[in-house]
């Protein structure tokens, strides 16, 4: 009875020992998967592999600083280039699990939007949470054009949806309450500011539905569940292009934009190749190829002009749109997400 067990154990131990040191492996890039990564493969990964002769292996993930931490523990990272959101970039860099980038190779900090520059990461796309509505429902009527309209259930009756939780709900509530864009986070730093946001949300509490996943807002609009919603701009344009919807985005109402960055785990064995791939991905001529496929804005200033106007108007970085954008304050939200989520849930339970 003992024998097969100990034999199996010995075999497993032996296997472990033999597997031992990790061999040099192919350059591995990790992104969000789905249609977005398909586009990245076509315009970045395959051309890069062709140009350099290096093989590019792909992986995908759903984000989370915990995942990056786990990858950083023990030995070499299995990933070389990772696309991250703001929270992971800020915390990962502070914790030293991300490698500082060689900004010389990227063409210097000045070539990019200010908000896309970080010691450990370079922005690759600009995406936005916007006010979206089904234009078909507003034919012959005035469509919502501000966050004040979103909170005005008299003129625009019907349910509306926001992302579950305090993030962005607070920003939009304050915008609706007349706080200018540049003052939003200043106001949120104060107790009164947070009260003000809750008071505004309270005014339409019974008409609010809270969405959880980015795929939900277009569905909520399509099914007529809500008349307007906050949504990721890429999802709205995709619904228009692929499902023939007539969803509108009120860019002028104000939107919150965020930047996804490319980073290198500090224990990557392929740092040089990783840096080369990142430089390739953020080069203006390559970045400009993304918006026609998926309407996220480029971060390289030189790429902005290379995007055709009919594509650019659907991106947050379009010159007509960007002035209405509020850059998501990652420091505020890394500090306050927990406390505000508690308060949000206490408010929701009332």
């Amino acid at each position: 009875m003992i024998k097969p067990l100990s034999l199996g154990f010995a075999a497993a131990t032996l296997g472990f020992l033999l597997a031992g040191p990790v061999q040099a492996r192919d350059l591995t890039v990790t992104s969000w998967g789905g249609a977005y990564q398909d586009a990245q493969r076509e315009i970045y990964f395959e051309p890069f592999a062709e140009k350099t002769g290096d093989k590019v292996v792909e992986d995908s993930w759903n984000g989370g600083i915990g995942v990056l931490r786990a990858k950083n523990e023990g030995g070499e990272s299995a990933w070389d280039v990772v696309q991250v959101e703001a929270d992971e970039l800020v915390q990962g860099c502070e914790e030293g699990i991300l490698e500082p980038l060689d900004w010389q190779e990227l063409g210097g900090e000045d070539a990019y939007l200010d908000t896309a520059v970080n010691e450990c990461g370079v922005g690759t796309i600009v995406w936005a949470t916007v006010l979206a509505y089904d234009a078909a429902k507003f034919e012959g009527k005035e469509a919502p054009s501000s966050w004040a309209d979103f909170f005005d259930t008299k003129t625009f009756p019907g349910k509306r949806a926001l992302r579950k939780g305090p993030r962005q709900s607070f920003e939009f509530a304050l915008m609706a309450d007349g706080v200018p864009l540049e003052k939003v986070y200043e106001v949120l730093q104060t107790k009164e500011g947070v009260e003000r946001a809750f008071k505004k949300l309270d005014s339409i509490k019974d008409d609010l539905i809270w969405w959880e996943a980015g795929a939900q807002p277009p569905q909520l609009l399509a099914s007529g569940e809500v008349v307007m919603t906050s949504a990721y701009n890429g999802r709205i344009t995709a619904a228009n292009q692929e499902e023939g919807r007539d969803f509108g985005i009120a860019w002028d109402a104000g939107f919150v934009y965020q930047i996804d960055s490319l980073v290198i785990p500090s224990n990557s064995p392929n740092k040089k190749e990783a840096m080369d791939l990142i430089a390739f991905m953020v080069a203006p001529e390559n970045q400009a190829k993304m918006p026609p496929k998926i309407p996220y804005g480029p971060t390289n200033k030189a790429a902005l002009d290379q995007v055709p106007p009919e594509v650019s108007k659907n991106t947050p970085t379009d010159e007509a749109n960007l002035p209405h954008g509020l850059f998501f304050d990652r420091d505020y939200w890394v500090d306050h997400t927990e406390a505000m989520t508690e308060r949000f849930n206490a408010w929701a339970s009332q």
């Binding site: 406390a339 508690e342 308060r343 849930n345 206490a346 339970s349």
Partner: peptide
């Protein structure tokens, strides 16, 4: 306003 976990 911050007490929430007992409710939950």
């Amino acid at each position: 306003g911050q007490a929430v976990y007992r409710i939950i």
